[in-house]
């Protein structure tokens, strides 16, 4: 079973066609880079794969579930259990301390708070974010917020990690370390990673590159 499978997916924002008839299958353990210039549809593809956006046409099957037949609550549940998302600016919950932000996916799944926070603290340590656990997102730099978002994405041991420009706010060395962690910790457990980026060093971490231009796939090559 593929981790995620998009078949003939199209999506428009009003009159702007963001994606046209795009198909992408990601196998368990596979790392795929989605690249292309700004506005080519990379982020839309990621949000569709995560079930955050609903495909206007075509089909998205996420860890075996056809998202067309799933309501918002069901999609949120699949996302929480199986998907870790890292967005460009972290997108942390502003009122929650960083430790609770990272523990949140586990808390929502009903894990005991103590256990969830211990796991969160472990991941904050692994991503290298050394701040007091009570720090609020507004007190973090852009790079720190991105590290916290990565810890939050990995805390559930997801089958699929979707990362949109995961290293954009980080210096080169920290970016490489984070990328290593996202890829190795996910694939070691048989999970898959989709990296959306215009950074060649990020694309070069993937097993396969899918390049988009104006909403369509223009090139797809195996790198491994």
């Amino acid at each position: 079973m593929s981790t995620v499978e998009l078949s003939g997916v199209s999506h428009a924002y009003g009159r702007t066609q963001a994606l046209r008839d795009v198909s992408l299958t990601v196998a368990p353990g596979e790392v795929v880079a989605v690249t292309g210039p700004s506005g080519c549809g990379k982020s839309t593809l990621l949000l569709l794969a995560a079930g955050v956006l609903r495909a206007q046409s075509g089909r998205v099957v996420l860890t075996g579930t056809d998202l067309a037949g799933a309501d918002e609550a069901a999609r949120a549940r699949i996302r929480r259990r199986s998907v870790g998302i890292v967005l460009q600016f972290g997108q942390l919950v502003p009122d929650l301390p960083v430790l609770d932000n990272v523990a949140l996916p586990l808390l929502l799944e009903g894990h005991a708070p103590r256990e969830a926070r211990a796991a969160a603290a472990g991941w904050l340590d692994r991503v290298g974010l050394d701040v007091p656990p009570t720090t609020l997102p507004s007190e973090l730099s852009g790079g720190q917020a991105q590290l916290a978002a990565a810890a939050r994405a990995l805390v559930t041991g997801p089958l699929l990690v979707l990362a949109d420009e995961p290293t954009a706010s980080l210096d080169t060395a920290t970016g490489r370390q984070l990328l290593d962690l996202l890829v190795t910790s996910t694939t070691a457990a048989g999970g898959s990673v989709v990296l959306v980026s215009h950074d060649n060093a990020v694309a070069a971490r993937a097993d396969r590159e899918v390049r988009l231009r104006a909403g369509s796939v223009v090139h797809e090559v195996a790198l491994s």
Binding site: A201, R205, L223
Partner: peptide, 16 residues
Amino acid sequence: VSRQRASHLRRMRELQ
């Protein structure tokens, strides 16, 4: 251009 890009990315991947 597409083949050249793939060749460069493979080399970068190898080095990484």
